[in-house]
Write a protein that binds this DNA or RNA. Structure first.
Lengths: 211, 211
DNA sequence: GATATATATGAAGCATTATTCAGCTTTTGG
DNA sequence: CCAAAAGCTGAATAATGCTTCATATATATC
């Protein structure tokens, strides 16, 4: 499914004046807005430009093509999620299993909720462009952060922290979208956090005994 | 993101002769083939028709539009996954927690692997058309099957089997795609099954004690 | 074999949309 | 204030692709 030719995804020109910096920001913002209000399939370059209050030509001055636009938005989104996990891991260094599980779930869920509207649209984008590299990068950041966290757990040692980190990452990155896709009453979101925490701490405890 | 006007998704005409039944089958198959080889964005009605060995006009005789085509394929795919879970649940009636966890994970993973190539493409499709109803239906089938299974578990009672069923469903339907998205060496798939089983049985055991 | 019904064809119409470019306006630096 | 550079415009281009329909072929029925 590789798209054969790989058109440049890097900016065509960097903004030099304040005016153009504002323009690029506006285009970036508008991309998100259109994604939300009109959906990924109805996102056209003209529409984005119009929403940003500029003309199409301007858009193409800074982004070589439509994909580059979406790529940039996706990159930021994934980075935000990975960062949330990293921060949670840093904050829970040396904690016990229970706390670790709760912390990681809570952090990811919060980050995801903050961007809950845009996420589904971006997953669509992620498949259209070949974004495997971006996803891989975000996944790896999460895995490494969790692995490091496990090494310092106060409760016990794990004989294969990397496998555990991989599993936890796959589950949170995978499950939460599934939860989000359904229209979720606020109460359900609290319940989801509780259940996932329970599941994670149970898993960690089990993996610990085995060591 | 609702698409405003809801164009008919039901067949425009039902095949009466053997010849046309074969045609419809060929179109359906071709849709899957094109999805796999060319990806969702390069799936055009003309291409599907050509792959099926018929002309575009013929395609439009049985499917009112492109969406209807994709809708049909998606429906079948989701139904297959839900059925896999249902069967696994039926087969494990009255088993203990350990067996239940292993059975459900194994069944879903197997069904998913069997269609691993087509799945990512379909998740893309699922967002483009408004397929929430279909996903909802498949999810509910899984939830109900698991709930029934939990009621009959030999190990113990759960005070809120529905919440547990919901959580397990979200995790398997959500996580496995995440696993699949990465290029997975076969060994990793075995490992994934093991880890998920461990996680599920831990979760069930924990939910049991609480009851 | 003749008529009616079902099925198949694919070029043409129509709409959408990514992308370019020649000319215009604004800002910068002297 | 004035050139040069940076930024902006939006109609025109070109490509793509969904859908229709007038026509042709195959099958069923009597």
């Amino acid at each position: 499914m590789g798209n054969g030719l790989a058109p440049t995804l890097t900016p065509r020109k960097s903004p030099r004046q304040d005016r153009s910096i504002a323009t690029v920001d506006a285009i970036f913002e508008a991309t998100i807005q259109v994604l939300l209000s009109d959906g990924p399939t109805r996102l056209t370059t003209t529409r984005v430009a119009h929403r940003a209050g500029v003309s199409v030509g301007t858009l193409y001055q800074y982004f070589p093509n439509k994909q580059a636009l979406l790529f940039a938005v996706l990159e930021q989104h994934l980075s935000t999620l990975a960062e949330a996990v990293e921060n949670a891991c840093r904050d829970n260094q040396g904690a016990n299993i229970e706390t670790i599980a709760a912390g990681v779930v809570k952090a990811y869920l919060a980050a995801r909720m903050a961007q809950s509207e845009i996420s589904p649209a971006l997953y669509l984008v992620a498949m259209e462009l070949d974004a495997r590299a971006l996803i891989e990068a975000a996944t790896r950041r999460s895995e490494q952060a969790i692995e490091a966290l496990l090494f310092g757990a106060s409760d016990g040692r794990f004989n294969d922290p990397y496998v555990i980190a991989q599993t936890l990452t796959a589950v949170i990155f995978g499950t939460v979208p599934a939860f989000c896709m359904r229209v979720m009453p606020h109460a359900a979101s609290v319940e989801a956090e509780k259940q996932l925490t329970l599941m994670f701490s149970g898993y960690l405890a089990a993996s610990c005994k085995a060591a």
